[in-house]
Write a protein that binds this DNA or RNA. Structure first.
Lengths: 280, 280
DNA sequence: GTCAACATAGAATGTACATTCCAAATGGAT
DNA sequence: ATCCATTTGGAATGTACATTCTATGTTGAC
């Protein structure tokens, strides 16, 4: 009888595992120490490698890896590996950590508070992603295109409409001529028909794509009008007809997305355009 | 004989793969297009998942994934997966590089890039402020008030209008009855006249306050209709006539404010209301 | 020096996986 | 409408894998 294996519950996240390893590294057998050192020094290898490949790199037997994992309460090596993978997934942002902390004392909090915290955390993540996803050079080119336009046509429906309406408001304040498309039903196409080659369009569309926006953007492009767009996927129909396009993926909370990152992007673009014009 | 399989050498890094996929997405069969879209939208899943698990998420057969990989010159799915893993390995460093560049706060950087960075930084700050400024108990009470309403009237003009329009969109999706006030000129007051004591209003107004919104909110309150509001100052005329009110100060960049934090707040409120209703 | 307790290596095992294969379905051309 | 080419779903296959097992090695106590 193997003395009940003690059912030590394994660490739940990478940091916890790290602490436990550091704590017990003195009392570990030789080979397990070796694995511990390797694991902390090459976490990426652990995350992606197979037991066999890791064993070779670390100069141990695959079985040693399994025993190592079991020593720390995991069922097998695979269980431990999950933690290393999760770490890589979440490394993008420390706000994940914060969210997890929030969730831990979550039962005590009201449902609404959890939702609130979830959305603020998602907003943080979104903005981090935004920073990483937008190429400064492309942004610069987009600003050039739109700043050179006589009138900027703002094309957006449904979920993206609030963004364009805010841009329209800000452009108004900044004395940049623009035309919001997507407000009243019917007259959209008449408005767009007035656009000429010296104008430009900024289109926004998120999945599921409002086909109308895509058609309108394509028509504009076909008529030689420069189109810049904001979307959430490289597969957006907008991408292919745009001179410049940007991919912004809003993080979601429980499947719902706010527009925090898109709003920041929109304002940055709006102000940049006005600034470029002012400077000539 | 299968026409020599062409030995098209597969892309060597993620960016190359991405370009090739985008390039050829038009000529791809339906299922492969589906995989392509999924792959570019959920690169992390591809990196970590197994062919089986990814297939389920993307709603295709595992074999389709293999075919997809082979279409792009890989020997099998595993070969393609390596690229997605490599990307994740390298992202850490490149992300840190980016931040370092950002910190150098360059004269070297284009004006637009500075503006962009300024707005993302401001968005982060705004959301931090939001977290600190909103009292969970008050939030909970606001949710209760609005969830109990038959119809929620959304009052907002000008700068705050994009927020209410997004809430209206989301409420529509969530099957919560609401009425957006502030759209077409003139009929606003007629709309509001229909509100009864079993309804409630959510008003948004930022400095400089649209006096119209304040008047409308006050009228509603005078008729015994509960008002909840979002504003940027305790001195807002909205504060005094509201059952619950929240102060959200958006951080600004060069005097311009985005609506990132307000949007996060709005979505949290919207979803919380829907959730409360669902649960009864 | 002997023994017990534990650690280790490497082979054996069974499972989960990527891949292949084939039959059915779809779509386009004649 | 008929046929061919291509695409697709799903079962079959074989491989690579984590894990378990057992014999051997190592350590330290008496």
């Amino acid at each position: 009888m193997t003395e009940t294996v003690a059912k030590v519950s394994p660490p739940q996240d990478f940091d916890a595992l790290r602490s436990v390893i550091l704590e017990r590294k003195g009392e570990l057998p030789k080979r397990l120490t070796q694995v511990a050192a390797y694991a902390l020094d090459h976490p990426d290898e652990i995350a992606f490698g197979t037991a066999a490949s890791i064993a070779i790199s670390a100069n141990v037997q695959p079985s040693t890896l399994v025993r190592f994992a079991q020593h720390f309460g995991f069922e097998g090596f695979s269980g431990l590996q999950l933690l290393f993978r999760a770490r890589l997934r979440e490394r993008t942002s420390s706000y994940e950590d914060r969210l997890r902390t929030l969730e831990q004392d979550g039962q005590a909090l009201a449902e609404s508070t959890n939702i609130f915290n979830g959305f603020t955390a998602a907003a943080h993540r979104s903005i981090d992603t935004l920073t990483a996803a937008v190429d400064p050079a492309a942004f610069e080119r987009a600003v050039d295109i739109l700043a050179a336009a006589e009138t900027i046509y703002l094309i957006a429906k449904r979920r993206s409409y609030p963004i364009s309406s805010y841009m329209a408001y800000a452009f108004g304040k900044l004395k940049v001529r623009c035309q919001l498309v997507g407000t009243a039903a019917g007259i959209d196409d008449d408005l767009l028909a007035m656009a000429g080659p010296r104008d430009a369009a900024f289109a926004i569309s998120f999945s599921p794509y409002a086909s109308e926006s895509a058609v309108q953007a394509r028509n504009m492009a076909a008529r030689g009008i420069n189109v810049v767009s904001l979307t959430d996927s490289a597969f957006s129909p907008l991408a292919e007809c745009s001179k410049e396009w940007f991919e912004v993926v809003e993080a979601d909370h429980a499947g719902f997305r706010s527009l925090s990152a898109s709003m920041a992007f929109a304002m940055a673009l709006t102000v940049s355009i006005a600034e470029k014009r002012r400077r000539g």
